[in-house]
Simulated scan of single mutants.
Amino acid sequence: MTQNSIDARLQDLLDREEIRQLITTYCNAADRHDNEKMRSCYHEDAIDDHGAMFCGPAMAFIDHLPEIQKDMEILHHNVTTINLAIEGDYAEGEVYLLAMHRVRTPEGSIDVLVGGRYFDKYARRNGVWKFTHRAIVADWANVHSPAFTTLDHPFLAGAKIGKPGPQDPSYDFFRLLTRVS
């Protein structure tokens, strides 16, 4: 194996890891309602397509997030399969996800578990990978009304309970993971 071949394989590995980190940073930002962290995931001219919820400039989507998330008591994004194709400073990804939403409605809280995928386009600009286009694709959903999740069961007594925003216990626990880079 030549040094050029090794260098190319190492660069591919580094690019894949940076893109995976971008994907998981997005999930953390969504779940914690951390819109500044979310903003750091997109290039300024990026597009976000969340279907009827929002489709347009990603920065406008992020500006609209407080309204979108105001009734979301729980958001929990989990990525599973990540398929990436990289060509220089451009990459595409099909990212499978499970996203749990607990949402307040006038009739009471509902739980919505969505199985879907993100169709992503990424660009490396100034040495940093970010989204240029992100579209959500729903493959299935499981809706429970009324909600079946509970956080007040005795089994959870004394446990730290996740919350949106900086009230989440992670902000007090971690020193490194909550920073926007």
Rank of each mutant, 00 (worst) to 15 (best):
108 G>Y: 15
66 P>T: 06
114 V>G: 02
173 F>K: 13
178 T>L: 05
57 P>S: 12
91 A>Y: 00
77 H>N: 13
170 S>N: 09
6 I>D: 00
25 T>P: 01
11 Q>G: 03
54 F>L: 04
82 I>F: 06
106 P>A: 03
80 T>H: 14
53 M>K: 06
91 A>F: 01
31 D>K: 09
32 R>C: 13
133 H>S: 14
63 D>R: 07
41 C>V: 08
62 I>L: 05
81 T>L: 10
174 F>W: 15
7 D>W: 06
93 G>D: 03
39 R>D: 13
53 M>C: 00
30 A>I: 11
56 G>S: 04
27 C>Y: 04
89 D>T: 05
36 E>H: 10
30 A>W: 05
101 H>W: 03
92 E>C: 04
21 Q>M: 05
131 F>D: 04
50 H>K: 09
79 V>M: 06
154 P>R: 05
134 R>L: 09
127 G>F: 08
47 I>F: 12
177 L>V: 02
159 A>M: 11
168 D>W: 07
134 R>Y: 03
79 V>T: 15
99 A>H: 03
33 H>G: 07
41 C>R: 12
83 N>D: 15
49 D>T: 08
46 A>W: 06
44 E>T: 10
84 L>G: 00
115 G>S: 08
44 E>A: 15
179 R>Y: 05
15 D>H: 09
86 I>Q: 04
18 E>R: 11
97 L>N: 00
137 V>L: 09
72 M>N: 07
11 Q>L: 12
40 S>I: 10
9 R>N: 12
158 G>L: 03
109 S>C: 15
55 C>Y: 06
180 V>C: 06
147 A>E: 01
113 L>D: 10
171 Y>F: 15
81 T>M: 12
113 L>M: 13
160 K>H: 13
3 Q>S: 08
165 G>C: 03
66 P>D: 09
93 G>Y: 02
124 R>W: 09
99 A>C: 02
118 Y>F: 14
146 P>W: 11
145 S>I: 08
57 P>L: 13
108 G>N: 13
161 I>L: 04
97 L>M: 09
147 A>D: 01
114 V>Q: 05
89 D>M: 02
19 I>H: 01
4 N>L: 06
17 E>K: 13
12 D>R: 14
23 I>F: 03
129 W>D: 00
31 D>R: 07
27 C>K: 00
45 D>A: 12
177 L>C: 03
37 K>G: 02
135 A>Q: 14
55 C>W: 02
8 A>E: 00
151 L>N: 12
35 N>W: 15
29 A>T: 04
141 A>N: 12
135 A>G: 05
156 L>F: 05
49 D>Q: 11
179 R>K: 14
164 P>W: 09
60 A>G: 03
142 N>G: 06
139 D>L: 08
63 D>S: 13
181 S>E: 11
3 Q>N: 08
121 K>G: 07
2 T>M: 00
42 Y>F: 15
169 P>D: 07
154 P>C: 02
45 D>C: 03
12 D>V: 01
65 L>H: 04
123 A>H: 13
152 D>P: 00
5 S>M: 06
167 Q>I: 00
150 T>K: 12
98 L>H: 11
138 A>F: 11
61 F>R: 06
176 L>C: 09
97 L>Q: 01
165 G>I: 02
158 G>R: 02
43 H>D: 10
166 P>R: 10
96 Y>K: 11
144 H>Y: 07
75 L>I: 15
141 A>S: 13
63 D>F: 08
129 W>K: 08
85 A>C: 10
36 E>I: 02
86 I>V: 11
